[in-house]
Simulated scan of single mutants.
Amino acid sequence: MAKANKPAAKKPAAKKSTDSHKIAKTQIVEMVANHTSLNKKQAGEAVACVLESVIGALQAGKSVGLPGLGTLSVTHTAARQGVRPGTNQRITIPAGKKVRFKVATTLKGNL
């Protein structure tokens, strides 16, 4: 009976990920294909190109403005002290970079 419970436990976990409020890249490709004269392959290439362009700009340290959506930018974080969970040991978290997103005021007002 223990073996019968394990597969049953895995199926709902997979089902939850498909029922979430997250939109997958394939769904975006379908939306682009439905709203344009592009087929799914062309829409997939277009979406991939846009995403690669955004990622490339962020890696180069540039900000990316998406009208009606917001602005993605890279911010630098300073080194800081932290605490390791479980052991309460003090550690130094190194300086790094984060991607910041600022929502457009038009979108913010319409949410």
Rank of each mutant, 00 (worst) to 15 (best):
K40E: 00
C49P: 01
A33D: 05
E52R: 01
L51F: 14
V54F: 12
G44L: 02
N39F: 13
E45K: 07
A43K: 09
N39W: 12
E45G: 11
K40N: 04
A46M: 13
A57M: 03
S37Q: 13
V47H: 06
G44A: 02
A48P: 03
G56D: 13
L51T: 01
V29F: 03
S53G: 13
I28W: 11
E52S: 10
N39T: 06
A33P: 01
S53W: 09
C49R: 14
A43H: 00
A33R: 07
Q27I: 06
V50D: 07
V32D: 08
I55F: 05
A43M: 09
T36P: 05
L38P: 08
V29Q: 04
T36H: 12
M31A: 15
G44R: 11
V54G: 01
N34P: 05
A43Y: 11
Q42D: 15
A46P: 06
Q27T: 05
G44Y: 12
A46F: 05
A43L: 03
H35I: 10
A46V: 09
N39E: 02
A57V: 00
L38K: 05
A48I: 07
A48M: 11
K41I: 03
L38T: 05
I28P: 03
A57P: 01
A33N: 07
A33C: 04
K40C: 03
S53Y: 04
V54Q: 03
I28T: 04
E30N: 08
Q42K: 07
I55N: 15
S53F: 08
V47D: 03
Q27V: 10
A33H: 01
E52A: 05
N39P: 06
Q42R: 14
G44N: 12
V29N: 04
I28D: 07
A46N: 04
N39R: 13
E45D: 06
K41F: 04
Q27P: 04
T36V: 11
A48S: 12
A57C: 12
A48W: 14
S37W: 11
C49W: 07
H35M: 11
C49Q: 02
N34V: 00
V50W: 13
L51P: 00
L38D: 00
K41M: 02
I55K: 10
S53C: 09
K40L: 03
V47P: 02
V32G: 02
L51E: 01
V29D: 00
E52I: 00
K41H: 11
A57Q: 13
E45W: 15
I28A: 02
Q27H: 15
T36Q: 12
K40G: 00
H35R: 15
A33L: 11
N39S: 05
N34S: 12
N39Q: 07
G56K: 09
L38C: 10
H35Q: 14
I55T: 10
V54K: 09
L38Y: 08
T26Y: 06
S37R: 11
